[in-house]
């Protein structure tokens, strides 16, 4: 699983620009009295592909969910594409329509067909005409290789297919940034590959990606930065090669020895 993608990735379009896509400064978050995120500082440039790893409960999901305000941060600053996330609902909706998100459990809308799932947000948020939205949706469904399922309902698809639809649904909004929250954790091994392949091809086109995952093969092949989190803070970040071959922090070494030990 870890080596298969590495050799075939086409890195020609994976260029990182100087433009800042996401700027997080001194972000803190509490659940009640529990300090989940502590002084998070992170700058993401356009075109970067960042993999966030760490033990469960380390706050990695919470951190990326703060970026589109599914979780509220209580201190510090998050600026996405030049718009600051605050309590202003207009800013939140604006950022959400620019930032795509893929969830662990797909979260497709079961009462709508695959095509309707993909066209709903473009039609109602972006005010795209229906015909055009459907054409875009078919384009992205072809890209994730399931155009023939367009008129089925999510319940009739396998987990891997559903997750690819979820990716296509996000792409239909033409987002500038994609967030992945453990996209393969709920899938069978056979299906993980088809989803990872889709994500790799997305990376090859230069999409800015933040990805919480335990797929270290994907991190090595695609990421240009790996972030390791523990206890609500960023413990170590580095290029994948250096991160995997020469981890500095004790906690990182322990984590890598656990996860790569098999």
């Amino acid at each position: 699983m870890q080596q298969q993608a590495t050799d075939t990735v086409d890195r020609s379009h994976m260029t990182v620009s100087d433009e800042v896509a996401i700027q997080i400064t001194k972000m803190n978050k509490w659940y009640g009295n529990f300090h989940v995120l502590r002084d998070i500082d992170l700058t993401v440039h356009r075109g970067e592909r960042i993999v966030i790893a760490g033990p469960s409960g380390s706050g990695k999901s919470t951190m990326i969910r703060c970026i589109n305000r599914l979780e509220e941060h209580q201190a510090g600053q998050i600026v996405v594409d030049g718009t600051e996330l605050g309590s202003d609902l207009k800013n939140i909706d604006k950022i959400r329509s620019e930032v795509g998100m893929v969830f662990q459990h797909f979260n497709l809308f079961p009462h709508l067909t695959i095509l309707e799932n993909c066209t709903l947000a473009p039609i109602w948020v972006r005010k795209v005409p229906k015909k055009e939205a459907e054409a875009t949706a078919m384009h992205f469904l072809e890209k994730v290789k399931i155009p023939e399922q367009a008129h089925k309902y999510p319940g009739q698809l396998s987990g891997g297919q559903q997750q690819r639809v979820a990716i296509a649904r996000s792409l239909c909004m033409k987002p500038r940034i994609m967030l992945f929250d453990e996209p393969t954790s709920a899938l069978d091994p056979e299906m993980i590959k088809e989803v990872l392949d889709t994500m790799v091809s997305l990376a090859e086109e230069g999409m800015t990606m933040l990805c919480v995952t335990h797929e270290m093969g994907f991190a090595q092949a695609v990421a240009n930065r790996v972030i390791f989190m523990d206890a609500g803070q960023i413990v170590e970040q580095n290029e994948p090669k250096a991160f995997f071959n020469n981890p500095q922090h004790e906690r990182t070494k322990l984590f890598l020895s656990q996860i790569l030990g098999h």
């Binding site: 930032v99 998100m101 909004m173």
Partner: peptide, 22 residues
């Protein structure tokens, strides 16, 4: 499931649209 609310939010649907459509 909470995921339905989150997915609607993440797509940028406002409260009334997400209630009405999702």
């Amino acid at each position: 499931p909470k995921g339905q609310y989150e997915a609607a939010d993440a797509l940028g649907l406002d409260y009334w649209k997400s209630m009405r459509l999702i």
